[in-house]
Design a protein around this nucleic acid. Structure first.
Lengths: 238, 238
DNA sequence: AAGAGTTTGTGAACGCAAGCACAAACTCGA
DNA sequence: TCGAGTTTGTGCTTGCGTTCACAAACTCTT
């Protein structure tokens, strides 16, 4: 992904270790498991327990946590509340993150209503849509605003993160406008490759790609491969 | 992920090369780009062109394609239609994949309406929901059926792939029922870790995890880390 | 206080993936 | 036919991520 170059030679933050990308991707999973444990009233847990409830290897879990610091106690395990706070702080979900969502189709609706956002510090400050007919609606308690208001909304609320839930053809234009408005992190649900300047992070979630990966493995399981006959190309794929 | 062990010693399929997981994950991206090129009337393209339109390195693209076979022509490039067919065949999207979706919330609606499924061989044969009030609805031209019909529907349509779009608490039960019914690939949108027997593949898409990864990098960019004071644990994270 | 049992943190080995760089194989013009 | 230009396919190097395995550090019982 578009990693902001850490200025060759000098570390990004003096005391902060560099956390590997693979570890960063797992921290939210640990956070969720710790929250569940805390809600269940559990005060302490071992790396083995936490690992099995998150579906990872316990050695990997311990190595992941070691990048954050030494927050466990040998012979005992981890304090659930303490570890949870430390992970939340590292990820950044102890802060408030104002977010805008662009594109109010089915997916935009689903995202606006998704409770998992609010509970982790993400606050949807506006839903934007280019269609003027939609701008009287209120979805999930948030006003639908015209897309042209993007700049003002970003400025007023200090929005750093934008979500694109538009059709593919509109995605690049939306991304450009977001970047211009000052957004530096984009979560893209549109099936399109976005070009953005350095310093802007883009993560992509593609629903059909995940299904296709499953189909690949499923095909291998059942051994049902299509005829590799090159002549079949004439017909093409539907 | 739960990779079906390829029987130590003997290759899974005699003639088939083993395609690396990282490559499999990119094949759908190439497929989409090739479809766009074909729609635009392009007959031939180089690895450089295809790479830039999919956002990957051209060397990586060529290496990925080399796992499928030698489908390019040196000095010329790749035949768009031919390569597209070969990739589609390898992934398995030249076949028809009947799919069931369980959980008709906002996300279920979005998935049922998503055109990217049908155009790639995925056919939603049923939407299942435990709520009896919803079973008169028709969403995206597909009947909403009671969850208890799962077994029959899977049997009748030969469903191999199931999608879980329920709340987290229901997910494991749904997965168990899916496995019992004969489903061997699950796409899970619920924020829960699923336990499934060997031979069943699970892929997870977690909307809030992606946002949290963005937040982590965003926090690093702005240098706005929260006070690491251990005493703050008393307050905990909201 | 000492030994047995438990669990963390991490050095080291291993394996997969990314990228470089170049020979091989093609086209095209003279 | 030959040489210049283009593009693929791939061996090799490098780096990252995973896993193993064990010393260090803790608790608990006697």
């Amino acid at each position: 992904m578009t990693e902001s170059t850490p200025a060759p030679g000098e570390p990004r933050v003096p005391g902060a270790r560099e956390i590997p990308e693979a570890t960063v991707a797992r921290l939210p999973v640990y956070l969720r498991a710790l929250t569940a444990l805390a809600d269940a009233g559990t005060a302490t847990c071992s790396s083995e327990e936490l690992a099995s409830s998150t579906g990872v290897n316990s050695a990997k879990l311990r190595k992941d946590l070691s990048y954050l610091g030494s927050y466990g106690t040998r012979g005992v395990g981890y304090d659930v509340a303490y570890l949870r706070y430390q992970i939340a702080r590292q990820i950044g979900v102890t802060q408030d993150w104002p977010v805008v969502i662009v594109g109010i189709g089915n997916l935009g609706h689903a995202l606006a209503n998704y409770s998992g956002f609010r509970s982790r510090g993400f606050r949807v400050v506006a839903l934007l849509d280019a269609d003027p007919d939609r701008q009287d609606e209120v979805v999930a308690g948030v006003d639908v605003r015209p897309f042209r208001d993007l700049d003002r909304i970003v400025r007023e609320h200090g929005v750093a993160i934008g979500v694109i839930a538009t059709p593919a053809v509109a995605a690049q234009n939306v991304a450009d406008r977001m970047v211009t408005a000052g957004i530096t992190s984009i979560l893209n649900f549109a099936p399109a490759v976005l070009a953005v300047p350095d310093g802007v992070d883009v993560r992509k979630v593609d629903l059909s790609i995940e299904l296709q990966i499953l189909a690949y493995h499923e095909q291998r399981k059942t051994g049902a491969a299509t005829d590799p006959d090159p002549l079949a190309v004439q017909g093409g794929v539907a």
